[in-house]
Amino acid sequence: MYAHTKHEIVACERCRSPFECKANSFTKCQCMTVQLNINETQYISEQYDGCLCAACLTELRDEYRAEINE
């Protein structure tokens, strides 16, 4: 199903899309492409416990920013 990879393939907790989780090399993980401040990180962690894909992290960051600017 997936090409051989040295990292685990996980499903995003929010959208269920599969992606390669690099928790053991988190600086190289796709989630590190989304810059979050401490408040955005807390907002997301209050809703989800597992890994999220970069697309969902971006959407949730934007959702949080829209809420605080209302």
Rank of each mutant, 00 (worst) to 15 (best):
M1C: 08
H4G: 05
S25M: 09
A23W: 12
E46G: 00
C21Q: 08
L36T: 08
I38C: 10
R65Q: 15
T5E: 14
E20C: 14
I9A: 03
Y64D: 10
I38N: 15
G50H: 04
N37L: 02
E8T: 07
E70D: 13
K22D: 03
Q35V: 04
L52S: 11
E59L: 13
E63P: 04
Q47L: 10
Q30C: 02
S25D: 14
R14N: 13
R14A: 13
C21A: 15
N37R: 04
E63Q: 15
T27Q: 13
C31W: 09
T41L: 03
A66L: 11
N37Q: 07
M32C: 10
N37S: 05
R14W: 01
A3D: 04
C21D: 13
E40G: 01
C15H: 11
Y64G: 05
Y2K: 10
K28C: 06
M1R: 08
M32W: 03
F19G: 06
K6V: 05
R61A: 09
L57D: 09
C15W: 02
T5P: 05
E63S: 13
N39Y: 09
K6D: 14
N39H: 08
E46W: 00
C15S: 06
Q42L: 05
E63F: 03
E20M: 09
D62C: 08
Q30G: 11
S45C: 03
D49K: 00
A23S: 15
C21L: 11
E40S: 02
R65S: 14
M32G: 12
T5V: 02
Y43V: 00
S25P: 02
T33N: 12
S17I: 00
N69E: 15
C21K: 12
L36S: 10
E46T: 00
N37A: 05
N24Q: 14
T27C: 10
E20H: 09
C51T: 06
Q47N: 11
S17N: 07
I38Q: 15
C51D: 12
C29L: 05
K22G: 08
E8C: 07
I9G: 03
M32A: 13
L52R: 09
E46F: 00
L36D: 14
E8N: 08
L57F: 12
Q47M: 13
R16D: 09
C15Q: 11
Q47W: 02
